Amino acid sequence: METTLNNFEKTIGEFINIVSSFDDRQINTVPFAGSWTPGQVARHIIMSNSGFADMLSGSVANTTRDASEFADQIKADFLNFNIKMKSPDFVVPEDTDFKKADLLNDLQHIEQTIQKDIKTMDLSKTCTSFALPVYGNLTRLEAIYFVIYHTQRHIHQLKNIRNTMVN
């Protein structure tokens, strides 16, 4: 649990820091054709991670396999930056102007919620409220690692966006 918590806190902290590094104008600037704005990337993570927070506190069942069975595959999938992924429609951010302060507040709220869940929940239980494409029903532990690796993917994306805006 301690390793999972540390990985989560480090990842979310880095994501919040990089979002913070964009000024109010840049947060809503499209850096290049086909890209989301930094605000849209942050909103996407908010939408996704809040869904996972709901999943963690939703219905669960006893797990009949290793609780971390899919963690390595999730990592391999999300940290493969050579492939372009398409987000499911329900986590595609709206095309609007975002307030950086609101995004940061939402990110910090989700961070606190999932931190509490990591500390207090049985992470070996299988979440039954939502089955993901490809993976199916994840354990709470795998769901947290999905949040970590998915967020790390978008840290990479935001670094590329920031580099484009600086150069």
Score class of each variant (00 low, 15 high):
Gln40Phe: 04
Lys84His: 12
Ala71Val: 14
Thr63Glu: 09
Ala67Phe: 13
Gly39Gln: 03
Gln108Pro: 11
Asn80Ser: 07
Leu107Gly: 03
Leu104Trp: 00
Leu103Val: 04
Ala101Glu: 11
Met55Glu: 10
Pro31Arg: 01
Asp117Trp: 07
Glu94Asn: 12
Phe32Glu: 15
Leu103Met: 02
Glu111Ile: 00
Gly34Ser: 05
Thr96Glu: 02
Gln115Gly: 04
Asn80Gln: 07
Ser48Pro: 05
Gln26His: 03
Glu111Gly: 00
Ile45Pro: 03
Phe52Val: 15
Asp77Pro: 12
Thr29Leu: 07
Gln26Leu: 05
Gln112Asp: 08
Asn80Ala: 05
His44Gln: 07
Gly58Asn: 07
Ser48Phe: 10
Asp97Trp: 00
Gly58Ser: 09
Lys119Ile: 11
Thr113Gly: 05
Leu104Ser: 03
Phe98Trp: 03
Ser68Ala: 15
Val30Ile: 10
Phe70Tyr: 15
Lys84Ile: 10
Phe32His: 13
Asp24Ile: 01
Gly51Leu: 09
Ser87His: 05
Ser68Phe: 08
Thr96Asn: 05
Asp106Gly: 02
Trp36Pro: 05
Asp117Gln: 15
Asn80Val: 06
Asp72Ile: 13
Gln73Thr: 15
Val41Cys: 04
Val60Pro: 05
Arg43Pro: 05
Ala76Asn: 15
Pro31Glu: 01
Met85Leu: 14
Ala67Lys: 11
Asp89Cys: 07
Ser48Ile: 07
Lys116Met: 09
Ile46Asn: 04
Glu94Trp: 04
Ala53Lys: 08
Met55Cys: 11
Ile118Asn: 00
Leu103Ile: 07
Val92Glu: 06
Asp72Thr: 14
Glu111Arg: 09
Ala101Val: 09
Asn62Gly: 14
Asp95Gln: 12
Gln115Asp: 09
Lys116Trp: 03
Lys116Thr: 13
Ala33Trp: 12
Arg25Phe: 12
Asn105Ala: 15
Phe78Gly: 10
Asn82Ile: 10
His44Ile: 00
Leu107Asn: 01
Asp54Pro: 08
Thr113Pro: 01
Val91Arg: 01
Pro93Asn: 02
Ser50Gln: 14
Lys86Ser: 14
Ser35Trp: 02
Asn80Ile: 06
Ser59Asn: 12
Phe52Thr: 13
Ile110Trp: 08
His44Lys: 02
Gln112Lys: 11
Lys119Ser: 13
Pro38Phe: 00
Gly58Trp: 10
Leu79Arg: 11
Gln40His: 00
Ala71Met: 09
Leu104Ile: 10
Ala101Arg: 07
Val30Asp: 00
Ala42Ile: 04
Asp106Cys: 01
Lys100Glu: 06
Ser50Cys: 11
Met47Asn: 15
Gly51Ala: 09
Ile110Asp: 06
Asp117Phe: 08
Gly51Ser: 10
Phe52His: 12
Gly34Phe: 01
Val91Lys: 00
Thr64Ala: 13
Leu79Glu: 15
Gln26Gly: 06
Ser59Glu: 11
Phe98Val: 03
Ile83Trp: 05
Arg43Glu: 12
Lys100Phe: 00
Met55Ala: 13
Ser50Lys: 15
Ile27Thr: 01
Ser35Tyr: 04
